[in-house]
Design a protein around this nucleic acid. Structure first.
Lengths: 339, 339
DNA sequence: AAACAAATTGCAATCGATTGCACAATTTAT
DNA sequence: ATAAATTGTGCAATCGATTGCAATTTGTTT
């Protein structure tokens, strides 16, 4: 029963005996309307509890004031902090943030992207799924010059802005850390090559071996999807080799953690028997024991800058700004697992 | 230059020499249009790359197909998993999810809620901030019967659906765990009473003491905002008492973690010298050492059910469904820190 | 006081899809 | 063959705000 009738500019106009256009202009503080009228209208608007209908305004102006975000999983710390950064900046600019997660499935990603497209988001920020080997859905945006930006995991065939970290250098550096602590037999648990980030980490790893004149032993390169289970299996295989490694660079912290747990259960000393490193600096990495050496990625920063970049583009669609690849620095964090 | 002209139903209508209304009906598979026409229209729509303008449809139908979500912080695991659950369900029903975070500030919460209101979300799912002692902003929704649902942290003065866990029982149970392992001097690091969850945890704690006929010693109840820093300070104060506790129920895992770290640095044995428990089961809680006893809250489930509940309400605004308080079970997880 | 410039305000079309009602076309019943 | 029922389609208003252009009012100048 409490359902009050919504007030429109027409109601305001009637009430004040002026036209709807004047009301509209007065509410947006248009200088073509006299100061006096503006004040009267604005007063009345408050008095009558007017609230603009964003939908109507959006329809007319062809803008939705909304950016879409697509990530593999919302509940992974890295992505959650990126979203947090996106939201914080978008909020200062009055933009809404619609999020969707792909669960690392291509089919769902396609669906999410299409949905955001239909919903006419003004721009989209994406980190692609592990399965993404196709770019048709992204062309919906890029072909129409609707701002599109990838962060961390990008689609190589789409030209647009990207915000990444240098996984190659980071993989190189953290491998070198194993080398410099004295490891001679270093293995790597890699993620799907389809994703630039895992490919780069692996290449960095391989390069570090070459530069240190260390061999890559047979079976020392494990291909997984970097889940807890697959990580455990991979690590198990590594440790069952006739000559197990004395250092393992795990493709992420999750697999490093399962390695760590395997070691605990099997009385393998970390880092004495085998040194371990991960990647990403998950919240648990600092507090497990031994604490986990890893690479810290600036998730919040990436999200914040992604929002800045894309909103800037949205607000300047007329300008032709060249696409940019922004590389943010990572931080090598040496902890007990490789000290 | 690639900017293609958007196709509207009018373009389709012209192309096919029929009216826009027929096109509109044909596209929605309205049975009043002949099968033949429907097919022709749908074919043509695909051929011309038509995409419906959701904004226009929304304006007309007065629905936005969007639910708003307001949480204190996106990057906290509990909230991230709740959002994940919300998104998963909403997606199956074709709803968009707009998220915003309050950073536990009332002012920002008010702002977010108002913004979602202006954006005419069809419903809103909220977990309130630590500062929320006012409900005016929520009345924007409740007064107009726009579906509103609180999860975990709710505003007691607003009548609407709630999805919670029983913090009282959970606090009671985890305190009892300390008792049953032999603790005689048990303290509690509490959160702001303003929030039902912290008040209930504390009350559960107090009740457990009474039922076990244990006293609450002077200074054994610390009021904090449950941050890492304040948790550390509080724990420090507890341990500096002439008679320090032999068991501490920390209001959340974050403070329990800082307590744990304090113990490590000061060579206090956990759980021999002091047993510790937290609350929430953060990702790190299982892997710290000693691993942390805690209460696991079903974040994903809460989010998923919240979405179910609110979308059901949105789709049945005509019906008068009584408000419901759904209490989901928690799980007591006993680990080394209190074994 | 007439003539012109400047400041305000209003008219009406527009954004794109939806829908009640009327009309036309076809089929069925009498 | 005609009336009645059924099916298919179109007209025009509507959702609420925006905006180019025209009209009106006010102020300035000679």
């Amino acid at each position: 029963m409490k359902k009050k009738q919504e007030i429109t500019i027409h109601n305001l106009a009637n009430e004040l005996n002026i036209s709807a256009s004047t009301v509209s202009r007065a509410l947006s503080d248009n200088s073509r309307i006299s100061k006096k009228t503006r004040l009267i209208v604005q007063q009345k608007a408050i008095e009558m509890g007017y609230r603009p209908n964003v939908l109507a305004a959006n329809l007319r102006s062809k803008k939705s004031n909304t950016i879409g975000v697509v990530v593999p999983r919302i509940d992974r710390y890295f992505f959650a902090s990126a979203i947090s950064g996106i939201e914080d900046y978008a909020w200062t600019k009055g933009f809404n943030v619609i999020i969707s997660q792909t669960n690392d499935l291509l089919a769902k990603e396609v669906n999410c992207v299409q949905s955001l497209f239909s919903n006419r988001v003004d721009g989209m920020i994406v980190s692609i799924s592990m399965q993404t080997n196709d770019d048709k859905h992204f062309r919906l945006f890029s072909d129409r010059n609707i701002p599109l930006l990838f962060f961390d995991r990008f689609c190589p065939t789409i030209e647009c802005d990207r915000i990444v970290v240098d996984d190659y250098i980071s993989g190189y550096n953290i491998t070198n850390q194993l080398v410099s602590r004295g490891c001679k037999r270093i293995a790597h648990i890699a993620g799907p090559e389809l994703l630039n980030i895992y490919k780069d980490r692996k290449d960095g790893f391989l390069r570090a071996l070459i530069d240190s004149e260390l061999p890559l032993y047979d079976g020392y390169l494990e291909d997984t999807r970097l889940t807890r289970e697959e990580g455990l299996q991979a690590f198990q295989r590594l440790m069952s080799l006739s000559q197990p490694p004395d250092g393992v660079f795990c493709g992420n912290d999750t697999t490093a953690l399962s390695a760590l747990e395997y070691c605990k259960q099997n009385n393998i000393n970390v880092p004495q028997d085998v040194a371990l490193t991960g990647f990403s600096d998950e919240p648990f990495s600092a507090v497990v024991s031994p604490s986990l050496s890893t690479v810290k990625q600036p998730g919040y920063q990436m999200g914040y800058q992604a929002a800045q970049k894309i909103i800037h583009r949205i607000e300047n669609t007329n300008l032709t700004i060249p696409f940019e690849k922004i590389v943010l620095p990572t931080q090598l964090i040496i902890r007990d697992s490789s000290r």
